[in-house]
């Protein structure tokens, strides 16, 4: 067996844990790294909003109408600085944005994850079974995708009614088709590769082939779609709230904050809409940047 060493790869790799390698690969792209930390900060804010907010904007006992329409940086009568100003009801905008992020992010991520699970299961089923199952599923997907997402969401909301759970259901129903189509397309390509034939030649069970061989190889496009769709869900929810059919007023998301300020925008109170809008923008852009970099890093074939 002396020939082994001659054809072996010359230099052995440095000993490093997979997690370490993953992190150093991810950090290669500085913009993505910045976006990642921004996203971490946003998630931190969303989770700990009640703790870190300067005021509680939804505690009616503490909100004073005399503080309304204050410009960014002015102080309240209780000597609290409103760094981003106040809205027409006298609520601190910074605190409102923190609370709004909590709702927006929660709704977006939760609906994204549920749609991902449902959509990829359906897409894998279509690709693996083929035939009539495939035709039926993909025609439903085609029909769904031919309607604008906002229209479908509006119809669903008007049927289902208001509420956080209702809007999550609506967002899932709007989004699953994107996942299903992506997974099916990739799975159809991967299914015909020889490693799948090899797996069936080794008499591995169907479940194992689908979930251990087929699904992991469909991941790169799925991750990209997942991040884009999560960002899309957040903006769709904001749109619905802006239109007044999204979340109830008692659970204000970023979209609702923007809608509130829209009425007074032309009166010179730009900050009431502007800052929630900026928060939404930063959230969506950083999610997309992180998603792109994740796709590059998670693909072993792109690694040096």
């Amino acid at each position: 067996m002396s020939e082994i060493s001659e054809i072996a790869i010359a230099e052995p790799l440095k000993v490093e844990t997979p997690l370490h390698r993953f992190m150093s690969d991810f950090a290669d792209n500085k913009i993505a790294l910045v976006a990642f930390f921004v996203l971490l900060g946003i998630i931190f804010i969303a989770i700990f909003a009640p703790v870190i907010s300067p005021t509680d904007p939804y505690d009616l006992a503490k909100v004073s109408i005399f503080d309304s329409k204050l410009a960014p940086g002015t102080k309240s009568m209780d000597e609290v600085t409103f760094w981003l100003g106040t809205d027409t009801s006298g609520r601190d905008l910074l605190s409102s944005i923190f609370y709004g992020l909590r709702i927006s992010l929660g709704v977006g991520v939760l609906s994204g994850v549920i749609a991902l699970c449902i959509g990829s299961a359906i897409g894998l089923m279509a690709a693996y079974y083929g035939g009539y199952v495939d035709t039926l599923i993909m025609r439903i997907v085609d029909i769904q995708l031919s309607f604008p997402a906002i229209l479908v969401a509006l119809i669903l909301i008007s049927v289902l009614g208001k509420g956080v759970d209702k809007i999550i259901i609506a967002l899932v129903l709007v989004q699953w088709a994107y996942y299903a189509r992506t997974v099916r397309g990739t799975a159809l390509v991967e299914r015909n590769k020889e490693y799948i034939e090899a797996a069936s030649c080794l008499a591995l069970s169907n479940n194992r082939i689908v979930f251990r061989h087929l699904l992991p190889n469909c991941l790169p496009p799925l991750i990209v779609v997942a991040t884009v769709q999560t960002a899309h869900a957040i903006s769709l929810e904001a749109t619905l709230s802006f239109l007044g059919v999204g979340l109830p007023v008692t659970e204000p998301s970023l979209g609702l904050l923007i809608a509130n300020g829209f009425n007074v925008m032309l009166s010179g109170l730009y900050w009431v809409s502007f800052f929630p809008g900026i928060a939404l923008l930063i959230t969506i852009v950083s999610i997309n940047l992180v998603g792109d970099q994740l796709r590059d890093v998670l693909n072993p074939r792109l690694q040096k």
Binding site: E194, Y195, E197, A198, C201, A203, L204, P216, N217, P300
Partner: peptide, 26 residues
């Protein structure tokens, strides 16, 4: 079966130990 294309016949997302060891364990 031994396949023609050694690039397509190995699952690119599995380590060698899993590629070889999956079926014997299963």
């Amino acid at each position: 079966m031994i396949f023609q294309d050694p690039f397509a016949s190995l699952n690119p997302r599995m380590r060698v130990v899993d590629i070889i060891g999956e079926a014997p364990v299963a």
